[in-house]
Amino acid sequence: MKRLLIAVPYFWLLALFLVPFLIVFKISLSDVALARPPYFPQWQFEEGWSALTDYLRALDFENFWFLSTDDLYWKAYLSSLRIAVVATFFTLLVGFPIAYGMARAPLEWRPTLMMLVILPFWTSFLIRVYAWIGILSGEGYLNQFLMWLGVIQDPLIILNTNVAVYIGIVYTYLPFMILPIYSALEKLDESLLEAAEDLGCSRFTAFWLVTFPLSKQGIIAGCFLVFIPTIGEFVIPSLLGGSSTLMIGKVLWEEFFNNRDWPVASAVAVVLLLILIIPIILFQRNEQKNREAEG
């Protein structure tokens, strides 16, 4: 029974990660073809062993080589990384004070505040991103409001720029940042801050020397939870970004849909995963350290 329980997460990993990954990896080794499905070679189980060896011989790493020949791909990876880093930073900047406020709020308010953070998930992600178009566009609510205030004379061009992409990412992933930081801050004993003040800290240094390091694990967890999916983000840049917003998710889409080149698209995805594995491993380490520190 116990073994069975241990097997469950491994089965999960196998079925939902490893098997799909191997399928994608296999496609990345094949060649594009005008066929159904649009790649070559294929192997059917009933064709037997000899066909399998022929099949395996036909696979190669050509598509990965191809990715290195065009600067589009590494530029797109770099650009995605940059956008993800900047967006994660801003999400932290917005998310931390919210998490902090929640953790310092009276106990009876906290479930409500938590609810408010989670509430947006009840609406479709797509609709929420679309709503930002209405807010950010030239004649959108934001510009109307700013012009009504008299802050600006002409509407700001925000939609279809990287700024809009950042706003979209910060908005969408904010709960992923708030929740782990909140859970770290909530555990923080208020008397630690009093002790720090008592020992000569101002409010600010107490925050910097006690609150911040003690919420570090939550901050790291939140940053990874935002950073990792942001790198591969496709919907937000395509809806809010401009033509010049270069992200690997969009490149992947074009490989898959415009070029119908499933093998190259798969190769792009495999490389993306390899890039993500580093932060994912770091994230796992952080989580483990977290658990050890608590245990």
């Binding site: 008397s191 720090a196 000569g200």
Partner: peptide, 20 residues
Amino acid sequence: VPPNKRAVNMMFQSYALFPH
């Protein structure tokens, strides 16, 4: 006088040791 400027120190009931 704010707490951090007082020549007074306190030992907390929970000890309030900085865990990090």
